[in-house]
């Protein structure tokens, strides 16, 4: 059987809220090492990769590897019924066709359980190669969200270019053009405002803003987000989930024919 108890139950809610608009149905894979998900959006342009390590759970038991197909919309509906401070426990039998979510209030005066029907989902699993990225910029998650939102009012695509002067986000459309440059700032008073840039070589790539905007729904999960880019490769947008793992998004660039 599978059983996992997460004291910070709202973390699961944040994860599902971050991906449910991008991915409709997905398989959650459980093994003794943790709880993971890999899924592409409907257009197969982006890939979501979630990893929650077993040691990040208060209790984690997985007797044999299993894949649980869920409708993320329905899962979000169920998790919405959990209190913000509730402890969430997931349970599933090895051969069952449901998964149970139990919510316990911190004062232990309210316990509820919700059963979600599992689905059979055919999903293609992709191998994500280790990549030596040319540039990685780590910036406040809220700043990334703002850049994507602001540029979306100007154009549909963004050119992200990393040089020694900083990382520039440029967009153009009927309205005009916009450029936003973020520079390294590792001496900001507040840690949450710091920006760091690791540049091995200059790189510039073009992406659809719609997807980058969608990834920003993960903002509540982490103070910072890292964008890693390499020439002619998908960008990796990485939200670290403290002491547990990560939620990563990969987006294929737009490339000349």
């Amino acid at each position: 059987m599978f059983e996992a108890r997460l004291v910070q139950g709202n973390l699961l809610k944040k994860v599902v809220d971050a991906v449910k608009d991008l991915v409709t149905d997905a398989n959650f894979d459980c093994s003794s090492s943790g709880f993971t998900l890999q899924a592409m959006d409907n257009s197969h342009v982006s890939l979501v990769s979630l990893s929650l390590r077993s040691d990040g759970f208060e209790h984690f038991r997985c007797d044999r590897n299993m894949s649980m197909g869920m409708s993320l919309g329905n899962l979000a509906k169920i998790l919405k019924c959990a209190g913000n401070d509730d402890i969430v426990t997931m349970k599933a039998a090895d051969d069952g066709d449901t998964v149970t979510f139990m919510f316990e209030s911190p004062k232990e005066d309210r316990v509820s359980d919700f059963e979600l029907k599992l689905m059979d989902i055919d999903s293609e699993h992709l191998g994500i190669p280790d990549t030596d990225y040319a540039a990685t910029v780590t910036l406040p998650a809220a700043e990334y969200q703002r850049i994507c939102r602001d540029l979306s009012s100007i154009g549909d695509t963004v050119v992200i270019s990393a040089t020694k002067d900083g990382v520039k986000f440029s967009s153009s459309g009927d309205v005009g053009t916009a450029n936003i440059t973020v520079r390294q700032n590792t001496t900001a008073d507040k840690k949450e405002e710091q920006v760091s840039i690791d540049l091995k070589e200059p790189v510039a790539l073009t992406f659809a803003l719609r997807y980058l905007n969608s990834f920003a729904k993960a903002t509540p999960l982490a103070s910072h987000v890292s964008l890693s880019m390499a020439r002619d490769l998908p960008v990796m947008v990485d939200y670290q989930i403290s002491d547990m793992g990560h939620l990563r998004f990969y987006l294929a660039p737009k490339i000349e024919d």
Binding site: E124, H125, K254, E256, D257
Partner: peptide, 14 residues
């Protein structure tokens, strides 16, 4: 215009 590639054209099936 640049063409949107799919993610599976970069990452092969595992």
């Amino acid at each position: 215009d640049d063409k949107q590639r799919t993610i599976s054209s970069f990452f092969a099936s595992a």
